[in-house]
């Protein structure tokens, strides 16, 4: 039981670390390269801004999560269940 629990904790930490790296990198890229464009969009076209904003947020949640799953699988580690 203890062994199972420590394995679960190890898997969670590994997954969180990997996912964390992706999320931080993604946010840094958006802040560095897209801030000017997003600001102009906010002031000129709110419909496009709303659509792009939703895509950016959903991508950060879903795409990076899927990427983490894919990498963990490739590394033969799987996700904590």
């Amino acid at each position: 039981m203890n062994r199972r629990r420590s394995r679960l904790i190890r898997d969670i930490l590994l997954e969180t670390f990997l996912y964390g790296l992706f999320v931080v990198a993604y946010t840094a890229v958006v802040l560095r390269w897209l801030d000017g464009w997003l600001t102009r969009l906010f002031h000129s076209d709110l419909i496009a801004y709303a659509a792009v904003g939703l895509v950016l947020i959903v991508a950060q949640g879903v795409v990076l999560d899927l990427l983490t799953s894919f990498l963990l699988e490739r590394l033969g580690l799987g996700r904590p269940q």
């Binding site: 946010t27 802040l31 904003g53």
Partner: peptide
């Protein structure tokens, strides 16, 4: 967002 109430950059930082 359509009403100008969303700062998406701030949201992304929080989401991190």
């Amino acid at each position: 967002a359509l009403k100008g109430n969303v700062d998406i950059l701030m949201a992304l930082v929080m989401q991190t």
